[in-house]
């Protein structure tokens, strides 16, 4: 059973939009779709590091604001002709609150 941590109210994220979450692992983009699903992805396009949280959300995907790469929410992979992937974390809505994987609070393991 995975543990979750409350990061805020669903209504604080615009519909078809995103907010940034600062974590020890770096900035995470927390997206909200038109259907009120939430997804947590690293806020960094695998192409040139563009902030995905600033992109246009459509269906279960976001278009990077810098060069229009399209990243799918479910597994973080780049769609269409481009290739690459973004790390994703578990996220869910419960009682109007947004919860993300508690692993996001952990300090990066020293390698």
């Amino acid at each position: 059973m995975r543990d979750f941590i409350d990061i805020g109210a669903l209504e604080d994220i615009p519909v078809r939009g995103a907010r940034v979450l600062k974590t020890p692992l770096g900035c995470i983009a927390v997206f909200r779709t038109a259907e009120d699903e939430v997804f947590a992805l690293e806020d960094r396009c695998p192409h040139k590091g563009g902030p995905l949280s600033e992109g246009i959300v459509h269906g279960r995907a976001v278009t990077c604001p810098l060069h229009n790469w399209v990243i799918g929410f479910e597994d973080g992979t780049v769609q269409g002709p481009d290739e690459g992937a973004v790390p994703t974390w578990a996220a869910k809505v419960e009682g109007g609150r947004v919860l993300v994987d508690v692993a996001l609070t952990a300090k990066r393991n020293a390698a």
């Binding site: 941590i5 990061i7 805020g8 604080d12 994220i13 907010r19 940034v20 979450l21 600062k22 974590t23 020890p24 900035c27 927390v30 947004v98 996001l104 609070t105 952990a106 300090k107």
Partner: peptide, 12 residues
């Protein structure tokens, strides 16, 4: 709205 939704680095 222009600030991060939450800052988990502080809790950590």
């Amino acid at each position: 709205d222009f600030a991060p939704l939450a800052n988990l680095t502080l809790e950590a």
